[in-house]
């Protein structure tokens, strides 16, 4: 009896507030827009036959016919991919440095990486608005050093979005890589060097392959959320930055086209399934390797 309650309560909660809402999104993506509130034709009220008659793939056909949507999907994929690589380039050397730091420093360094994660995401993105703007600190600094003659336009471009994603997701990249490097047996590298590898060869042939799991985990932890990101492109990106999270938001709040917004959501999820499954598999493999 106790066991039943223990299982039933969280189960029912998740069914009602996670699975059912998701099915509603799926259903609405197949219905028609009405100009009333709620702005979609309520289905299911007039019997099952009509219910199935009312469903169609109009919204999906609309998504396919309008350039905006598939361009937004492609450019989100591209932005997420490039920023994942950039985060790896910034994060790996940091994780590597942390793993080679004296043992007693490591907890402090770990905390310094985790601390920004606890501070508001919104504020961390906002902080860059003052740095990247025309009269912002970066431009002031570059003008002062004489590197540039006139201020660069960085805010409201895709470059600013890259910077924002790298900045906010950096801890997610560093922590799994650090965890992998921290476990790495130092004598393996010494052995490689004794056997005639240069330091760089030892790094490339021993360290990198042995931290592969950390690299893969960190990359997915950046790539998956970056793909559906909304706050960063809307604060740092410009009108030229197309990202699907922003398109969905605007479709919903500005155009009030709920069926199209739902169709956008369904396709975004379909795209996400592949990296999510790959990520799960990597985690499982790692867990099995540890046992």
């Amino acid at each position: 009896m106790q066991r039943l309650i223990l299982i039933a309560v969280p189960y029912a909660w998740l069914l009602a507030l996670f699975l059912v809402p998701f099915l509603i999104v799926f259903k609405i993506s197949l219905s028609d827009v009405e100009l009333a509130i709620p702005p979609y034709t309520p289905t299911l009220s007039d019997g099952l036959i009509q219910f199935f008659q009312a469903l169609d793939f109009e919204n999906f056909a609309f998504l396919a016919s309008d350039d905006l949507y598939w361009k937004a999907y492609l450019s989100s994929l591209q932005i997420a991919l490039i920023s994942t690589l950039l985060t790896l380039l910034v994060g790996y050397p940091m994780a590597y440095g942390m793993a080679r730091a004296p043992e007693e420093w490591r907890p402090t360094l770990m905390m310094l990486v985790i601390l920004p994660f606890w501070t508001s995401f919104l504020i961390r993105v906002y902080a860059w608005m003052g740095i990247l703007s025309q009269e912002g600190f970066l431009n002031q600094f570059l003008l002062w050093t004489g590197l540039i003659g006139e201020p660069l336009t960085i805010l409201n471009t895709t470059t600013a979005v890259y910077i924002g994603i790298v900045y906010t997701y950096l801890p997610f990249m560093i922590l799994p890589i650090f965890a992998a490097l921290d476990r790495l047996d130092g004598s393996l590298i010494e052995a490689a060097e004794d056997l005639g590898c240069s330091r760089f060869q030892a790094f490339w042939l021993v360290t990198i392959p042995l931290s592969r799991n950390g690299i893969v985990a960190g990359s997915f932890l950046v790539f998956i959320p970056a793909l559906g990101e909304f706050v960063i492109p809307s604060l740092l990106g410009g009108s030229g930055t197309l990202m699907i999270g922003k398109v969905l938001w605007e479709e919903f709040f500005n155009n009030r086209d709920w069926p199209v917004a739902s169709a956008v959501a369904v396709i975004l999820l379909l795209i996400l399934i592949i990296p999510i499954v790959l990520f799960q598999r990597n985690q499982q493999k790692q867990a099995e390797a540890e046992q």
Binding site: P93, R100, P102, Y167
Partner: peptide, 26 residues
């Protein structure tokens, strides 16, 4: 692995500056 090379020190310094400078400025 307790040998911090100049490369490690630089990447840690630059990395943490990148993480903290925006908030310090704010």
């Amino acid at each position: 692995m307790n040998r911090l090379s100049w490369f490690n020190v630089t990447s840690l310094t630059l990395g943490f500056a990148f993480l903290y400078l925006p908030m310090v400025i704010l």
